[in-house]
């Protein structure tokens, strides 16, 4: 039994079958990549895992509990954090404040009314946030207005915001899209380091095969909403079906 079990998930958008009979099992403490051509349904699948979309049929179990019917914040409280395809951060807040919000959410749950104690006095959480910023090499930007940062930095910040929560499962939707090569390599190193240090399961959607083959222990290939194959990176590399899915229309 994996930490994440997706069974027979279907999702239609009007006439379009975005997901058809998707089965997926992600083992605990592994890194599982989901690849596939544009429009294959990768983001849709992720949305079904975090409560943004509800599958028409099928079940999604995380850590032995169903996530279906739960709101996104409840699912996050269960231990799933997600990085979006386009960076979603708090643009009006500073980098440090961006980091503090997940810290508060982890400690106090989905709602806590502390209107009088000041943020400054939360030394423990500030330390947590700062050491995470150090880990992702952003400590020098702590007082920066986060909207004014580069796209790569925003992605890194978003990842740090997810990691500081110590999630059991980290979902990454194309975390290196739009990054320079050097930044991509930094991200790979960061994720490897994180995986060694903590008990964390990672599910990653990625087009960049360099990233996929550097990180993934298992790969699922999705095409037109259905998984084609699931295997180890070595076996996927030369798989004829995979080549067909990626090059099929062109060939």
């Amino acid at each position: 039994m994996g930490i994440l079990e997706v069974k027979d998930v279907n999702k239609r958008f009007g006439g379009l079958q975005a997901l058809g009979k998707v089965n997926l099992s992600v083992a605990e403490n592994s890194c599982h990549a989901i690849i596939g051509p544009n429009g294959a349904g990768k983001s849709t699948l992720l949305n079904c895992l975090v409560g943004k979309l509800i599958p028409d049929t099928g079940s999604v179990m995380f850590d032995g509990q169903s996530v279906l019917g739960r709101t996104p914040f409840e699912i996050n409280q269960m231990g799933i954090s997600r990085v979006f395809q386009t960076p979603e951060i708090f643009g009006d807040l500073t980098v440090m404040e961006n980091m503090l919000i997940p810290c508060f959410a982890r400690r106090d749950g989905s709602f806590a009314l502390h209107g009088i104690r000041s943020v400054i006095s939360e030394a423990e959480l500030r330390d947590q946030a700062e050491s995470m910023l150090e880990e992702v090499n952003m400590i020098d930007k702590r007082d920066m207005h986060s909207a004014s940062m580069s796209r790569g930095d925003k992605r890194r910040l978003e990842m740090a915001m997810c990691l500081v929560q110590n999630p059991k499962l980290l979902l990454l939707d194309e975390p290196t899209a739009g990054m320079a090569r050097a930044d991509t390599n930094n991200t790979i190193d960061l994720l490897k380091e994180i995986k060694e240090k903590r008990n964390i399961t990672i599910a990653i959607i990625e087009h960049d095969m360099h990233v996929v083959f550097s990180l993934a222990e298992r790969i699922t290939v999705l095409a037109q909403g259905t998984p084609l194959v699931e295997d180890t990176p070595e076996n996927i590399k030369g798989h004829p079906k995979v080549k067909e899915a990626y090059l099929g229309e062109a060939a």
């Binding site: 975090v50 709101t71 996104p72 914040f73 996050n76 409280q77 954090s81 997600r82 979006f84 979603e88 951060i89 708090f90 643009g91 919000i101 997940p102 508060f104 959410a105 982890r106 749950g109 989905s110 709602f111 915001m161 929560q165």
Partner: peptide
């Protein structure tokens, strides 16, 4: 950003 807040467990 309400979306981010939701996916941050708040």
């Amino acid at each position: 950003n309400q979306q981010r807040l939701n996916y941050t467990g708040v």
